[in-house]
Simulated assay, not measured.
Amino acid sequence: MSQFALKMDIVDNARFSPKPDPRFNREAAISARRFHQGLTGYRPTPLNTMRQFAHELGVAQVLVKDESQRFDLNAFKILGGTWAIARLLCRKLDLNIENFSFRQFREAGHPKMTFTTTTDGNHGRGVAWAARALGQNAVIYMPKGSSPWRVKHITDLGAECIVTDMNYDDTVRLTMRTAAEHGWEVVQDTAWEGYTDVPTWIMQGYATLADEAAEQMEAMRLKPPTHILLQAGVGAMAGGVLGYFADRYGAENFNAIIVEPDRADCLYRSAIKGDMVNIGGELNTIMAGLACGEPNPLGWPLLRDNARQFISCEDSVAALGMRVLGNPPAQDPRTISGESGAVCFGVLAAILHHPQRDALKKQLNLTPESRILTISTEGDTDPQHYREVVWEGKNGITHC
């Protein structure tokens, strides 16, 4: 087996002290999932078992939850946006969330409103999908350098899409100002003072995938995971999903590992400092969905208390994950995974080939009994870039 060393900085969380959060637990996830089950096209996404890869890595089990098959949107983000919009409308119009239906709302002919958000692609696509399903309007803002493919995915759903000359976090601030001027409803997946309800609902909506995974593991007669790897941008998905698993299994009973690109590693730096750290600049990483420099203040306490390690890694780690998932060993199932989707599996693949493999496994407490869960959060949402990485070797490997 060839060896190569990809940059992965790992920090142990000195503030690990498991604490539940009543907003992000199994009960909240079940409520969100019950709503999602009523949406046209809902079905649980696959949970794939990578038996041969696990054997080569020297662990008992590696699982990949494949969110490329979430509705027809190729990513998990619709789970948060749809649940948040449903909750927002129910509060605004005094409706009952227990029997709320997108179809019935549209047919009722309510006055049109406009939903707006900042996105790196997938979240905005989910908001645009929901707005169209409800017969409403959507205006989606994207940061500088956004892929034309991701823009097209949004405009194809009937939304207006505006690409700014700012980074993600500054674009969020622009979105807020514009929404206030026009009276639009903001559906943003990060929180700030005075804006917490919608991002709370978004995080709860993401936990649908965690509830599915837990149910699927039980149906497959598998024991709960000993390791859960979660990629993070602002930390909304990671926080919502970790909150669910911490409530279900107890955070002390598994190793939660948070993974970020090294060019946008605000949570990794926050873990070192012990408090939220914001970073600015271009945030120029191929992991567009994770190119965020300011932690979500709702997600950060969950990660600070319940994650055991944080990893900051170079883009080549995500590229490696894309290639291995797309071309797995032996009879392992193939997964089309985008840049942000593949990075956690990429960490495992990088460890497999690393000259210091044994030391890295020891640092992450990976043993022959380890059972690992990863989530491929997106498919090839930027098909051109996917081919550049997987076919043409972009962000390739330098061998030792």
Results as ranks from 00 to 15, higher is better:
Arg150Lys: 14
Ile375Thr: 08
Ala256His: 03
Thr117Cys: 15
Ser31Leu: 13
Arg304His: 09
Asn253His: 15
Leu6Gly: 01
Gly274Gln: 11
Val139Arg: 02
Ala288Gln: 13
Leu360Met: 13
Val198Trp: 02
Trp184Leu: 02
Gly58Asp: 10
Arg91Ile: 01
Asp66Ala: 05
Leu267Glu: 01
His353Arg: 14
Leu298Met: 07
Ile85Pro: 01
Arg357Glu: 14
Glu185Leu: 10
Asp165Trp: 07
Gln204Gly: 09
Asp332Thr: 02
Asp72Cys: 11
Asp211Phe: 05
Gln188Met: 09
Tyr141Gln: 03
Asp21Glu: 11
His123Leu: 04
Gln3Ser: 12
Ala84Asn: 11
Asn167Gln: 13
Leu63Tyr: 04
Leu352Cys: 07
Ser101Val: 07
Asn96Ala: 13
Glu392Phe: 14
Val11Ala: 15
Val151Lys: 14
Asp189Gln: 09
Gly250Ala: 10
Arg70Pro: 05
Ala288Pro: 03
Gln61His: 13
Val324Gln: 04
Lys144Trp: 12
Leu39Ile: 15
Ser17Glu: 15
Asp72Met: 09
Val390Trp: 06
Thr200Glu: 13
Arg34His: 12
Gln3His: 09
Leu73Glu: 02
Ala210Asp: 03
Pro333Ala: 07
Gly126His: 04
Ile97Gly: 02
Thr208Asn: 15
Ala131Val: 06
Ala213Asp: 00
Trp83Ile: 10
Ile30Trp: 08
Ser68Arg: 05
Gly38Ser: 15
Arg33Lys: 15
Thr116Glu: 00
Ser370Trp: 11
Glu215Phe: 01
Ser270Lys: 09
Asn137Leu: 01
Pro18Cys: 12
Lys77Ala: 09
Tyr195Ala: 05
Trp184Val: 03
Thr119Ile: 01
Asp197Arg: 10
Glu260Arg: 00
Ala264Val: 00
Val163Leu: 10
Leu283Trp: 02
Asn296Thr: 06
Lys362Thr: 15
Asp305Cys: 02
Pro328Lys: 06
Met8Tyr: 07
Ala256Phe: 05
Leu222Phe: 14
Phe254Cys: 06
Lys394Val: 08
Met217Ala: 03
Gly239Cys: 02
Pro225Met: 11
Cys90Pro: 08
Leu89Arg: 05
Glu215Tyr: 04
Thr116Arg: 00
Arg248Leu: 13
Ala238Val: 08
Val127Gly: 00
Asp262Arg: 00
Ser147Lys: 14
Ser68Ile: 03
Asn48Ser: 13
Phe100Leu: 05
Ala180Lys: 14
Thr398Met: 05
Thr200Tyr: 08
Ile78Met: 15
